[in-house]
């Protein structure tokens, strides 16, 4: 379950040591934009030590390394891969070749360090126009790709348009990424909402992302985490309905019925699949039922 992914600057100890307490399903240790070139090595060491010594139970660990067009990314991976992060976030992914280059180096490093092959997933951060157009190819470039991730700040710079709270300028990128990710069978995460003081804005923006089909949403502020979690969680009514769907299906099977209806609506395969997903999430949130 990754409803919320919280960016933590890789060079701020106080944020890092409290990272697991901030309620996010995943934290992203940032070695890229948050860290100036002079501090890249220090941040790497700090992030490595944080992952080594801190308890992140119940909170996945993602590392945003530097892009493959920089001199830093291989050293980033050398330092953090032994700590077994859950995911590596690869910035400025614009093509399947970018994924393959990173994948090749990660596979080599896993071998060199004696780590389980393919254990760490890759998340492609799509933040260029080319990346958006290549989204499906990127998502299906390697079995290591676990998700696509929209980065709207850099993308709007590339598109030469203004980033707005309403987000009309990224409508196409959002729907394109969701479609590409789903077509490839991977998850997809929405870009952070950057006004940390706008409580209504984050609510609206997260609700929009959920409505479009995103799996979860990134955040640059701990203050947004709770809202994102709430928006991306199934409601009690949704959970109850999911259990009702599964029970109806079970009874229909027992009675040898083909098509069944619930509350006057035919239950078809997509409804059952959605019910399964809802129940799986409810169980992860501790809201599942024991008898199911």
């Amino acid at each position: 379950m990754r409803r919320s992914l919280l960016f933590l600057p890789g060079n701020t100890p106080n944020m890092l040591i409290n990272g697991s307490c901030l309620g996010a399903d995943a934290v992203i240790f940032d070695l890229e934009d948050a860290v100036s070139p002079a501090e890249k090595d220090a941040a790497r060491i700090l992030v490595r030590n944080t992952m080594t010594y801190m308890d992140f139970r119940g909170c996945e660990r993602v590392v945003r390394i530097n892009g493959i067009d920089t001199p830093y990314w291989k050293e980033d991976l050398d330092e953090v891969l032994p700590c077994r992060p859950d995911l590596i976030l690869l910035p400025k992914t614009s093509s399947a070749a970018d994924i393959q280059e990173a994948d090749t180096y990660i596979t080599e490093t896993e071998k060199r360090l004696g780590l389980a092959a393919g254990a760490v997933g890759l998340v492609a951060l799509i933040e260029t126009a080319l990346g958006v157009e290549n989204a499906f190819a990127i998502a299906s470039a390697s079995p290591r790709v676990a998700a696509l991730f929209l980065g709207a700040e850099d993308l709007t710079a590339d598109l030469r348009c203004k980033r707005t709270k309403e987000g009309r300028e990224i409508e196409y990128a959002r729907t394109r990424l969701v479609t590409a990710a789903r077509a490839a069978g991977v998850d997809v995460y929405d870009t952070p909402f950057t006004d940390v003081n706008d409580d209504e804005g984050i609510e609206t923006d997260a609700a929009l992302a959920k409505a479009l089909g995103f799996t979860g949403k990134a955040s640059i502020s701990p203050r947004h985490v709770e809202t994102i979690n709430r928006v991306f969680s199934p409601s009690q009514a949704e959970i109850d309905y999911a259990y009702e769907v599964m029970e109806t299906i079970r009874l229909a099977k027992e009675q040898g019925k083909g098509a069944v209806a619930l509350r006057g609506k035919m239950i078809d395969a997509p409804i059952v699949e959605r019910a399964r997903q809802t129940i799986a999430m409810a169980q992860e949130m501790g809201l599942g039922r024991e008898d199911a």
Binding site: N18, C21, S221, R223, E226
Partner: peptide, 11 residues
């Protein structure tokens, strides 16, 4: 407080 840790405690 705007401190994220303080807000977590408050919640």
């Amino acid at each position: 407080t705007r401190d994220p840790v303080g807000l977590v405690m408050a919640q």
